[in-house]
Simulated assay, not measured.
Amino acid sequence: MIPFSLLDLAPVPDGSTVSDALANTLDLARHAEALGYRRYWLAEHHSMTGIASAATAVLIGRVAAETRTMRVGAGGIMLPNHAPLQVAEAFGTLATLFPGRIDLGLGRAPGTDMATARALRRYLAGADSFPQDVVELLGYLGDARPGATVRAVPGEGTQVPVWILGSSLFGAQLAAHLGLPYAFASHFAPTDLEAAIRVYRETFRPSVHLAAPHLMIAVNVFAADTDAEARRLRTSMQQAFVNLRTGRPGPLPRPVDDIAAVCDPAALAMADHALAITAVGAPHSVRAGIGAILDRYRPDEVILTGQIHDHAARLRSFTIAAEVLADLDVRPALAAG
């Protein structure tokens, strides 16, 4: 059985509140742990009325407190928005409170627009210094350094596992160079997936952090009791993606019976291309969809996501997905030979 995890964007559905969204996240996390999900990751986005996870480290702490054994972490923290020392202190604190359960995924994008990036007091140059910032952060989380004038307390010695997140060859190259695990954002940017996997695995350099490459890919899942209902659930994410890419972000839209009636054909085609790494349908269809994705890319882990308007339907979707994955026999590429 391949390890499977869950990426929760803490969506704020149309007609609900941020308070509702956060309560739904805690409820989903408890269910995910009971269903056997290995990790529960939350992502940093700012100034978006449809996503409630802006204070990512705060929410990670709350989720960790509501669960007992599942790993909880960031998928990810957008490092250009932060000083590495502050991230080390925050995640060092989390790791001290919840030993052995905290992950730190790092992204290079700001996760917002430029006006909001300026409001965060960080600037475009932050992306250019990403590799150096990652190395600095690793140093703060590592063993105590004799004579160091700057130390992360808490943080020092916690060895919080750091992942590089990416949707291009840049992240793959950096993760391989530093000997870190790599998570590819195939749930919304699949174009470079195969090339990134090849680069990461072929150029990986063993490190004190990791002896061999470890790849996780993200897959959208919309599962229901029937194919028709699952396709209907998916229309919320299709609309949200179109709205985001056309400059109209907002709460997660309600599902519709006919997506073509509410989205411009060209915009919908763009969204469907970006969201191509998706399994949708009744249990047998989801099994076939996930199975085909895993057979093709052979990751070491898979992380599932899927923005669904109705919370009960979202719980049901991730339940079906967990049952499917627990029954799939897919070996990672390195074990396949």
Rank of each mutant, 00 (worst) to 15 (best):
I2C: 01
I2D: 00
S5E: 02
V12D: 00
V12L: 03
A21I: 06
L28P: 02
R30T: 11
E33L: 09
R39T: 04
A43H: 07
E44N: 04
H45V: 02
A55I: 07
V58N: 11
E66Y: 11
T67N: 11
R68C: 13
R71C: 06
G75W: 05
G76C: 13
L85K: 11
F91D: 02
G92R: 08
G92Q: 06
A95D: 11
T96F: 10
L97V: 14
G100P: 08
G100W: 12
I102V: 14
D103M: 08
P110E: 00
T112A: 03
R121I: 02
A127W: 11
V135W: 02
E136H: 08
T149Q: 14
G155C: 05
Q159L: 13
Q159H: 15
V160I: 03
P161D: 00
P161E: 01
V162K: 00
V162T: 08
L165F: 03
Y182E: 01
Y182V: 02
S186L: 01
A195R: 15
P206R: 09
V219A: 03
V221T: 04
V221S: 02
E229H: 15
T235V: 02
Q239C: 05
L244K: 04
R245F: 11
I259G: 05
A260F: 05
D264R: 08
P265L: 07
D272A: 11
T278I: 10
T278R: 09
V286M: 07
Y297D: 01
R298P: 07
D300R: 10
D300T: 10
E301L: 09
I303P: 04
T305K: 07
H309M: 09
D310F: 10
H311Y: 08
R316S: 09
T319A: 14
I320L: 12
A322G: 13
P332I: 09
L334E: 15
G337Q: 15
